[in-house]
């Protein structure tokens, strides 16, 4: 069993790497020691770690979600299916998988603004947005998004009027939420690929509007 303050008086015996102060050592050194131990025991292949890192650094990221959003903006049939059965609609694009098995897409409109959080841990649609940004996993966002969503949005530069309804989605199960942002005005002439470039990671979490931030922010 893992140690805890309350029921395991001998936790030093299980946590020698943490030393007598109970403060863990430098995570970089700890990681190196663990990788080396597990490699020696055949419990991990360093090349598989390389492949995992490369997948999330180079291949699986918010461009996937942006593609889904842009298609919904140009194809009403796809959008209809996406809002009814996002998992089925996205399956054809090959984006489902780890932390993206059951997808729910919620649509922003002039009257409704959606915001996604995971107060209990850091649930996030990896298959559509890649790994979550640090602020999404940190205490301030997880604590405040449910009790003060308008304050959170204002901090991100998004001031919503009283007439707008804010719907917060706390990801407590394996459903993963993606916000379908409003299509920005004046984009009628843009291609699907050009539209996708306007869709930021933040817009798909619900802390920004599409096209509201400079390119590269997401």
């Amino acid at each position: 069993m893992p140690y805890s303050l309350s029921n395991h008086p001998h936790h030093h015996d299980h946590q020698p790497a943490h030393g007598h102060s109970d403060v863990p050592s430098d995570p970089a050194l700890r990681t190196k020691a663990l990788e080396s131990l597990l490699t020696e025991k055949g419990l991990v292949d360093p090349a598989a770690i390389d492949a995992w890192v490369e997948a999330y650094e180079k291949k699986i990221g918010p461009r996937r979600g942006a593609q889904v959003v842009a298609r919904a903006w140009v194809d009403p049939n796809f959008k209809g299916r996406l809002l009814r059965d996002a998992t089925g609609a996205i399956e054809t694009l090959g984006f489902l998988g780890r932390e993206a098995q059951h997808i729910v897409v919620v649509e922003n409109t002039p009257a409704i603004h959606n915001l996604v959080v995971c107060t209990l841990c850091s649930c996030y649609p990896w298959g559509l947005l890649g790994l979550p940004p640090r602020w999404y996993k940190a205490a301030p966002y997880r604590a405040r998004a449910v009790i003060d969503p308008r304050g959170v949005l204002a901090e991100f530069g998004l001031a919503l009027g009283d007439e707008v309804e804010v719907r917060v989605w706390d990801s407590t199960a394996e459903l993963r939420y993606l916000v379908l942002p409003e299509r920005p005005g004046g984009t009628e002439h843009l291609s699907e690929a050009e539209l996708a470039a306007l869709v930021t990671r933040d817009a798909m979490i619900g802390v920004a509007k599409a096209g509201a931030l400079r390119e590269g922010r997401a």
Partner: peptide, 25 residues
């Protein structure tokens, strides 16, 4: 809340290694 501009998935190399260990071990 402290958003970062142009944030990478991993801020330091060890983060990717630690993440990868717990995924592929």
């Amino acid at each position: 809340i402290a958003p970062e501009r142009d944030e990478s998935p991993f801020h330091e190399t060890w983060e990717g290694r630690a993440g990868g260990i717990l995924e592929v071990m």
